[in-house]
């Protein structure tokens, strides 16, 4: 795969050490890249390493192998110039799954939103800051009246919007969203996904979107990567992946989506994916335009 892109993840591995003897390989040899302004979806079952990849991309976790670069800057590089550090901090933003814990319950929305500005020393002037906060709340469909409330007083959807607004405040070029809709109910999920689509079109940021809701990913993303047991098994443009999945795991995952017709649903068979036990060779194979599959033999 070519690595000439905006965000590139090269042979990323991450191992969590639980004790001296037990370690878990959360991510094994994952490579992909994201183009400028692209929305890349990452799907897979729980525990497949999606969040670990997101955290490595954000530099929260230090990968035990491989490299993540953002616009040519090594995210975990030891010797970064202060300019590069500031760029990494300001241009990459993360949105977490549980907005309840991603916002400090003791802070008002005003303080939560001001935090990134305080850290970077932006918009020190009071009126300017106020205008900026209101403008960003407006982007996510909230009004200024919410500024004095605390996260506990908001609904889940409002909280998630506040954390999106916080991410947007820095005018980021890359947003990593780690299952941003998983903790919301279905109607709010649709709102938030629409909001993402709208915001992405308006601001043009690059977006790594992690979810396990396949329908949402299909609706939102340009390309989709499928992860299973710490490996990226398939990566393809959305339409192609949904129309012609190649990897057996992807097929199993896609066919697990229920059909809203009880007669069909009852009669159909869901293929179960069993990982091959003795894999001697793994190879990324190009099977179509921009469509890659991990071949296991």
């Amino acid at each position: 795969m070519p690595y000439n892109d905006y965000v590139s993840v090269e042979h990323l591995s991450h191992r969590f050490r639980l004790t001296r003897k037990i370690a878990i390989d959360a991510v094994k040899d994952v490579s992909f890249s994201i183009d400028r302004g692209e929305i890349l979806g990452l799907v897979g079952e729980s525990g497949s390493g999606k969040s670990t990849v997101a955290r490595c991309v954000m530099g929260i976790l230090r990968p035990s192998g491989g490299r993540v670069t953002y616009d040519g800057i090594d995210v975990n590089g030891a010797r970064l110039s202060s300019e590069e550090k500031i760029r990494l901090q300001c241009e990459r933003q993360i949105i977490f799954q549980d907005s309840g814990s991603a916002l400090n319950p003791r802070m008002s929305v005003r303080r939560i939103l001001s935090e990134p500005l305080d850290i970077c020393g932006l918009a020190r002037d009071r009126g300017e800051r106020e205008a900026l906060l209101i403008q960003n709340l407006d982007f996510v469909g909230l009004d200024a009246g919410i500024l004095e409330s605390r996260p506990g007083e908001l609904s889940g959807g409002q909280r998630q919007r506040v954390s999106i607004a916080r991410a947007l405040l820095m005018k980021p070029k890359l947003i990593v969203a780690d299952e941003p809709i998983a903790s919301l109910d279905v109607s709010i999920q649709a709102q938030i996904v629409n909001l993402f689509k709208h915001l992405q079109a308006e601001h043009g940021f690059t977006f790594l979107f992690i979810a396990h809701d396949l329908a949402m990913v299909e609706f939102l993303c340009d390309r989709v990567g499928v992860m299973s047991k710490g490996r990226l098994v398939e990566l393809a443009p959305t339409r192609q992946l949904y129309d012609a999945p190649r990897h057996p795991y992807t097929r199993a995952l896609l066919s697990a989506v229920p059909i809203p017709d009880p007669r069909l649903e009852r009669s159909r068979e869901i293929p179960v994916y069993r990982a091959p036990e003795h894999v001697t060779r793994r190879e990324w194979t190009r099977v179509g335009f921009d469509h890659y599959v991990l071949m296991e033999r």
Partner: peptide, 26 residues
Amino acid sequence: QSEYVVASRCMGGGFMHVLVNHFAPN
């Protein structure tokens, strides 16, 4: 481990910033 602390670190919040804004009030 709270995500708001992680988020604050991601935004570039230093030790004293996180201490004063997130740890101390708690």
